[in-house]
């Protein structure tokens, strides 16, 4: 066998191995969508990916058993608000930490780094009482405030700081010479140059908020106020009887749009996460 042939064979082996490894990563999605079209009996019947009877009505009933459209909207607007707030706050702080010298900066960095290590579960109980004190239990505020200012927000701040550090200073200096204030430099020069970092923060923050579970579980109680993950985990009829096929249909409705966006922008999304891990 020639060297070329061995290389081709070698590569083919690798590709086949990767294809097999990919099965448990793709298959759940396919199964989910297929089961979303089935009846309960068929879901637990003989394994088949093509439903014997396509129950399109599952996807309609999802909206009648729960205020699913409202829950969808809740998740969407909360994620957008959190993303917007995080972008502003983290880029402000990240800029100051990267570019400005001030007393207490080192200490602040240390505090913020330690926050990254602490699981949300540790502070969830006092935060419950804090929200109670603000009168915000059973509103959406905790789902907006906690991710924005908690470890997730801190992570965004670090990401922004690292990015600003890597930017060349010259343009900003020039801006200052032209009479821009600090704020002006941040807004007119630094921010436009850091689009990739802002996009990364936006993507990660949005997904984090979209998938948030512990906080909604504790702070929100009525069906109308539910967010998607909470609604999915509790898909029952009025008597608490689980609606298996509707749950899977609803899960498909919640997951597939995100997957489509992911497939379109996969490069950008994957890079965003790479940025967050290495730098954070």
């Amino acid at each position: 066998m020639s060297l070329r042939q061995t290389r081709i064979l070698y590569r083919a082996c690798w590709t086949i191995a990767l294809l097999i490894a990919a099965i448990p990563f793709i298959f759940p999605f396919i199964w989910m969508v297929s089961a979303g079209f089935k009846s309960v009996t068929e879901i637990f019947g003989a394994p088949s990916l093509i439903p014997r009877v396509w129950r399109w009505e599952n996807f309609v009933e999802v909206f009648t058993y729960q205020p699913f459209a409202r829950q969808y909207f809740n998740s969407l607007y909360i994620a957008i608000l959190v993303t917007g707030l995080t972008l502003v706050i983290s880029s402000l702080a990240g800029y100051a930490l990267a570019r400005m010298r001030f007393a207490g900066a080192a200490l602040l960095m240390l505090f913020l780094i330690s926050a990254l290590m602490v699981p949300e579960e540790v502070t969830i109980i006092p935060n419950f009482f804090l929200m109670r004190w603000f009168g915000l239990v059973d509103t959406h505020w905790p789902l907006i405030l906690l991710p924005t200012f908690g470890p997730q927000g801190v992570m965004a701040t670090f990401l922004m700081r690292q990015y600003f550090l890597a930017l060349p200073k010259e343009l900003e200096e020039a801006g200052k010479m032209d009479g821009l204030t600090r704020f002006g430099v941040w807004w007119k020069i630094a921010l436009p140059m850091s689009r990739p970092a802002l996009a990364a923060v936006a993507i990660i923050t949005f997904l984090h908020s979209w998938n948030l579970f512990l906080e909604p579980l504790i702070f929100v109680s009525s069906l109308e106020m539910f967010t998607l993950p909470l609604a999915l985990s509790n898909f029952n009829d009025s008597y608490g009887l689980p609606l298996w096929n509707l749950q899977l249909a609803a899960t498909s409705l919640a997951v597939v749009p995100i997957l489509i966006v992911y497939l379109i922008a996969q490069r950008q999304i994957i890079e965003s996460f790479a940025l967050s891990g290495v730098k954070g």
């Binding site: 990563f25 993950p229 999915l232 997951v255 992911y262 996969q266 994957i270 996460f273």
Partner: peptide, 17 residues
């Protein structure tokens, strides 16, 4: 893309399936 796809999926959805 395939190996990363579950990362963007909600843990609840993943666990349900």
């Amino acid at each position: 893309t395939v190996f990363f796809a579950p990362v963007v999926t909600s843990a609840i959805a993943w666990a349900i399936v």
